[in-house]
């Protein structure tokens, strides 16, 4: 056995998404006025970068759960609807029942976890294809949310709850703390307990994992429940942010952003790899693009196209064929020099 040689930096799995994010930020800092400026106002940090992270929080939260599910060759299309459901429940609890804060936070999360459980059971026990199983809740969930609010936008005033979306702790937006906390917790579960091994073995070779005694079904269900919880938390943030449960818009199409973030992060849809840091970087890349375009006054129609082009480029980098071609190109230049 030879001594382990450290991997070249650019060969590490999370290098590309993080590098691209850094590049985007650097470009922005150079080209967009005020992008890199961070100032302290009223004892809290303000600035475009902070805003990017704050706005990107829901997608980042979703990406954390989605990474696990996708690494097990699943997918969860229902996260946006689950967000809407969680938001609707929270808003109703405040506006109609005037429930205490603990209840307002806990009950929506329980609902979201139950939604995840439902997805997980459909996939594992009923044996449905994940895309179909979660499509059901994608459609039904928003309907349920509308039933909960009676089809109206429920508005509320509850500073303690709004803190979730707009508050700051030690000068840093509370959403950031939440994302950091969830990321660290799930990251620790993945890397410090065997959970990551189970997840990647299920995604890599489910039959082998089963024959090795891995509780395939239980772990898959756990993945969906965790994704549900993340979606619930994202729903609470989104609702607290606007002081209202807007069920027909809350989390609309966000599942696509989350999936794209995971893919940008280097987790393959064919499973077997879980790259959480990459997924977070992916979510931030998307949000940075959105924020930049807003700041530069580029219209929504262009923004979408530009986002798509960036996503396409990153995904191309992940294909071995494209990378081979790129390497040959770079190699030739080196030779010529």
């Amino acid at each position: 056995m030879t001594k382990q040689t450290p991997l070249a930096l650019w060969r590490r799995p999370t290098f590309w998404p993080v590098a691209l994010l850094a590049l985007l930020w650097l470009l922005n800092a150079a080209l967009t006025p005020n992008f890199a400026r961070i100032e302290v106002r009223d004892g809290r940090l303000f600035g475009s970068l902070i805003d990017v992270i704050h706005r990107g929080a829901p997608v980042m939260l979703l990406a954390v759960g989605m990474t696990l599910v996708i690494a097990m060759r699943g997918i969860d299309l229902s996260v946006g609807s689950v967000m809407a459901m969680a938001g609707a429940v929270a808003a109703q609890l405040i506006a109609v029942h005037d429930a205490p804060l603990a209840v307002v936070v806990a009950v929506p999360l329980v609902v979201a976890a139950a939604a995840g459980l439902w997805n997980g059971l459909l996939v594992t026990l009923a044996g449905m294809q994940p895309i179909v199983a979660t499509l059901i809740l994608l459609v039904a969930g928003r309907g349920v949310a509308q039933l909960i609010t009676g089809g109206q936008i429920t508005t509320f005033e509850r500073p303690a709850f709004q803190f979730l979306g707009t508050g700051a702790l030690l000068g840093v937006p509370f959403t950031l703390w939440l994302v950091a906390g969830v990321t660290l917790l799930v990251g620790a579960l993945l890397r410090l307990t065997p959970l990551g091994l189970y997840v990647e073995s299920i995604g890599g070779n489910e039959r082998a994992a089963r024959l090795a005694g891995v509780r395939v079904r239980a772990i898959k269900v756990a993945g969906y429940v965790l994704t549900g919880l993340c979606a619930g938390l994202a729903g609470l943030i989104a609702t607290a942010d606007i002081k209202a449960a807007d069920v027909s818009n809350c989390g609309l199409y966000i599942e696509l952003d989350a999936i794209l973030a995971v893919v940008l992060g280097g987790t393959s849809l064919s499973g077997g790899r879980a790259r959480m840091v990459g997924a977070l970087a992916g979510a931030l890349i998307m949000q940075t693009l959105t924020t930049t375009m807003l700041m530069r006054g580029i219209g929504q129609e262009y923004a979408l196209v530009i986002k798509a082009v960036v996503a396409l480029l990153v995904c191309l980098i992940y294909t071995p064929r494209f990378r081979g071609a790129l390497q040959r190109l770079v190699g030739r230049e080196v030779h010529a020099a």
Partner: peptide, 15 residues
């Protein structure tokens, strides 16, 4: 039915 090809030697052994 046996190996998880993308995982490492270590991970396959301890699975």
């Amino acid at each position: 039915d046996g190996l998880v090809q993308d995982l490492s030697v270590r991970e396959n052994i301890v699975l």
